[in-house]
């Protein structure tokens, strides 16, 4: 009880809560290597997945790069946490996973974390593996699975987005607590320290997770209102509202119906035979035999080809005169 109170006391001393990433140097060498080993297969799968997507769509790599920039910017934004009276920042991997899928989202998180580690001292190079596992792997997969599950269960976009944001945030912190407790416990047993660290995160992260859920829901709803095409393209929602599919079915049905066996005569006469020749015959002006009869077939086609070539050559040779050149003044 005393220790719990001390923990609570320590937490309320907090100024800005930056506990999202494990800080540089906090993990001993062996733990740092272990978390790199855990993160590596997910990053490799993310690279493979992205390369596959980029083969079909060249815009995928720039898109994922920009998503990494968005995650970076979002995770730099201060967000007020009412219970702790401080500002913290969301992780943003929930929305990334919803939009680009969990494997590519791991890559997005890895890049955002790398830049933050080197140029902001948020997280670190030695803790990059651990941070990728907590924020990238756990956050992305939790967000994506919960979103898909909620959608399958019939939840609307806002509710599914909210649940995904909450799950991504809370699971990130749960895994961060595991990583921290296992690294700094020394000779102490793991579970009590894990519990303490988890409790230490509660005043900030419990409300922050809810806030991140609300933020994720807001983002998804905004996208649905303003740019539903993006959600369709990223396969978050299915395309259209059924109208396009209905029109397609109607068009297909009309085509099939009109291509059914005709009641007309077997052979339709052309305009020349049915109208022109008929009128000419009525007026005693039937067609005469041509002066040069090339007949039908290849010889006639060859004659047309020769005439076309000669005409084309002449037009090409004199095109300047026809189009742009003006005759000098005083001539003709």
């Amino acid at each position: 009880m005393v220790r719990l109170m001390v923990t609570t006391l320590l937490l309320f001393l907090a100024s800005p809560a930056y506990a999202m990433h494990i800080s540089e140097g906090i993990l001993p060498f062996d733990w740092a290597v272990l978390w790199f080993a855990v993160a590596a297969p997910f990053v490799a799968l993310g690279v493979k997945r992205l390369n596959g997507l980029a083969k079909d769509d060249l815009a995928m790599k720039p898109l994922v790069g920009l998503m990494a920039a968005v995650v970076f910017v979002i995770s730099c934004m201060p967000i007020p946490v009412p219970t702790a009276g401080t500002c913290s920042h969301p992780c943003g991997t929930g929305i990334a996973a919803i939009l680009v899928g969990p494997l590519v989202s791991v890559l997005v998180a890895a890049v955002a974390l790398l830049i933050q580690a080197i140029f902001l001292a948020h997280g670190g190079l030695s803790t990059l593996g651990a941070d990728i596992v907590s924020m990238g792997v756990a956050g992305s997969f939790a967000g994506w699975l919960v979103f898909r599950g909620a959608r399958k269960a019939g939840a609307n976009l806002a509710v599914a987005g909210f649940l995904a944001g909450v799950a991504a945030d809370w699971l990130t912190y749960a895994v961060t607590s595991v990583e921290l407790a296992s690294a700094i416990r020394g000779n102490e047993p793991f579970l009590p320290l894990f519990g303490k660290i988890l409790i230490a995160f509660v005043p900030t992260q419990l409300p922050l997770g809810i806030l991140e859920g609300a933020m994720t829901a807001g983002m998804v709803v905004l996208l649905q209102r303003k740019r539903p095409d993006l959600l369709v393209r990223m396969r978050v929602t299915k395309g259209g509202n059924g109208v396009a599919a209905m029109l397609f079915v109607l068009l297909l049905a009309a085509t099939i119906l009109t291509s059914s066996p005709s009641l007309a005569a077997d052979k339709w006469a052309g305009v020349d035979e049915a109208v022109v020749e008929k009128v000419a015959r009525e007026h005693g002006r039937e067609a005469r035999r041509p002066l040069i009869d090339l007949g039908e077939g290849d010889l006639q086609l060859f004659a047309f080809l020769l005439a076309g070539t000669a005409g084309g050559f002449a037009a090409g040779y004199y095109w300047r005169m026809l189009v742009s050149e003006k005759r000098p003044a005083g001539r003709g």
């Binding site: 720039p62 898109l63 920009l66 998503m67 968005v70 939009l99």
Partner: peptide, 29 residues
């Protein structure tokens, strides 16, 4: 209101990222 504004801000950034990625790809191709 703050939360709603923040959601709008983050959503606007995502839309900008999508649009920029298309423009970048066109220019780079």
């Amino acid at each position: 209101r703050g939360l709603r504004s923040f959601g709008t801000l983050a959503g606007a950034l995502v839309i900008k990222a999508f649009d920029n990625s298309q423009n970048i790809t066109t220019a780079m191709v």
